[in-house]
């Protein structure tokens, strides 16, 4: 609305009004005032009408956006199970790592103990101060130690490999968290979209509708968090091997 329009009556109309009042023509003065206020009301009505129509459109588009329904019904609960999966996987990895460390410690300590037992006699041998009896004991101790040590270092290697493999959780949970981040971004966009719809009605038509989830069967999906409830996925390496061998692999 321009500033001019905000003035209820024009200068000419005001002068006319003064003239009517001076002449004592109150009927004409009333008529003039009514006409002036009517002009205002018509503009107001037009504005209310426009707003009503925009609100109606906005509500309609809001209901039509199925993606929001999907988000609330499927994607948010799905995100919850994904995050639960992350907690479980990180917990499993932490426990595997700590189990391996706890199993490694006594092995390393045992090796140190054996070395400490052998060391005094070994020193004697090196300084040529060993007696024949002691030498025989040392030989036996060394024999036991060497076979023990090789066994124990093999055990340590396999425990360290377990620790290494447990770190795979970072990849698996990372892929799952990325999907949750994408979802959060989409919810954010939907909320912004909603605010835009109610704020600036002109924008509605320009906002592209979110496309439905891709249903491509070979589309990457990341780690399967609910393998038990699905029959389109393998449950582990054995299933993969069976499937591939059924294909002639």
């Amino acid at each position: 609305m321009s500033i001019k329009a905000n003035v209820p009556i024009s200068l000419e109309e005001a002068k006319q009004l003064v003239t009517y009042l001076e002449q004592g023509d109150s009927a004409s003065a009333n008529a003039l005032l009514e006409a002036a206020s009517m002009k205002e009301s018509i503009e107001l009505f037009a504005e209310v009408g426009k707003l009503t129509r925009q609100l109606h459109d906005a509500l309609n588009s809001f209901q039509l956006d199925e993606r929001i329904v999907d988000l609330a019904n499927d994607d948010i609960p799905d995100a919850q199970s994904r995050l639960t999966y992350v907690i479980e996987e990180t917990e499993k990895a932490a426990n595997t790592t700590m189990d391996a460390v706890e199993a490694s410690m006594p092995i390393a300590e045992g090796l140190t103990e054996q070395i400490d037992t052998i060391m005094p006699e070994w020193k004697k041998l090196m300084t040529r101060q060993i007696e024949l009896g002691e030498f025989k004991v040392l030989c036996n101790e060394l024999d036991t130690f060497l076979s023990d040590a090789s066994q124990k270092s093999n055990k340590l290697t396999s425990l360290l490999t377990e620790v290494l493999m447990a770190q795979g959780y970072q990849d698996l949970t990372g892929q799952v968290i990325r999907r949750v981040i994408d979802l959060v971004k989409e919810v954010e966009d939907s909320l912004v979209n909603m605010l835009t719809m109610f704020g600036e009605p002109g924008e509605i038509a320009n906002t592209p509708k979110q496309s439905r989830k891709q249903t491509d069967k070979v589309e990457a999906e990341g780690p399967i968090i609910d393998a038990d409830q699905r029959d389109d996925v393998v449950k582990g390496q054995d299933d993969v091997d069976d499937l591939l061998s059924s294909l002639g692999f």
Binding site: D171, L172, K217, V218, I224, V233, V240
Partner: peptide, 20 residues
């Protein structure tokens, strides 16, 4: 981590030598 049967079949068809 991709574990859908269709994916494994697709990989086999594309000529993968092994799938873990």
């Amino acid at each position: 981590a991709e574990a859908k049967k269709e994916q494994i079949v697709a990989a086999a068809q594309a000529g993968v030598n092994g799938y873990v």
